[in-house]
Design a protein around this nucleic acid. Structure first.
Lengths: 148, 148
DNA sequence: GAGCATAATGAGAATGAATCTAGTTTGTGT
DNA sequence: ACACAAACTAGATTCATTCTCATTATGCTC
């Protein structure tokens, strides 16, 4: 579960894509594999850099397209990493997930999880006219390094 | 408190700016006044549109600069409205604030507040190596209109 | 295994929000 | 009123993201 390349997530993702009526394409598979290799959020351009070197190279458009489809299927979550840039990270099929604290100065991102927070969010969601399918919590401040 | 133009917030903001060593400039004042007239998040470009028509017109750069300063002073909060666009809204000086549920389909934004959620976030923040100064919760899903 | 419809792909152009630059104006303390 | 720094505007620039479109590959059917 703490393996840095999460094979089970990748398999699950590829299966879900197929079940959703998608064909098996090289670029999208590469994106899934790359995501599986990251434990926390990566930007689309980081993935692009990483995948552009492959043979054959993966185009930027394909990376964005794949991420969008994965997000739509609830396989990855999108969060705002820093002003105007999105980060993507895989979603545990078991529903287990974490949130992030982001340092205002250096952009460092620290994941955390907390069950009473989850419970509170769940309760709020219930009492809402919305049908809430996803939530996202971001704490912002200064990390211990930048605080001096 | 439900007045659509919140004069007290505007006054508070202008005072805080001054206390922070800022001079009183026409453009920034205009931005503060415009923000006071909105109860929920507005995008920078909406404000720009709104203020460009003034005599004298306010430049786009000034809008962004003012928003950044206001955010730095904790007078406005920045949230991601839709992919790649930020929304800004005034922060109640009393510390009273709300979060948002955003419809994935139509982009509609519904504010909500919940004290046990706040409490949970506060607790998490305490136990963190970060010095957390701000937090942001976004619920995403389908609003009752789009759900049919 | 060949043929077909169509999804998937990649290169690069286009978009659009946000930031930066340069030169000008304005506010404030003296 | 003067001087000097902060604030301002217009427009160019940057940079993430999306779009276009010609090309390639997949999965089906026969």
């Amino acid at each position: 579960m703490t393996r840095s390349t999460d094979t089970s997530w990748a398999e699950h993702a590829l299966e879900t894509l197929q079940a959703a009526g998608h064909r098996r394409g090289g670029a999208r598979t590469a994106v899934v594999e790359a995501l599986a290799g990251h434990d926390c959020a990566v930007t689309a351009l980081d993935l692009d850099d990483e995948l552009r070197r492959r043979r054959p190279p993966v185009g930027r458009a394909s990376v964005y397209r794949a991420l969008e489809q994965l997000e739509q299927l609830g396989l990855v979550q999108r969060i705002e990493v820093c002003r105007g840039t999105a980060g993507y990270e895989r979603v545990d099929p078991a529903g287990h997930h974490h949130h992030h604290a982001i340092c205002r100065d250096c952009g460092r991102m620290v994941p955390f999880e907390n069950s009473s927070l989850e419970r509170a969010i769940h309760e709020v969601s219930e009492g809402m006219s919305f049908e809430v399918t996803e939530h996202d919590v971001v704490l912002r401040g200064t990390c211990e390094r930048c605080a001096n």
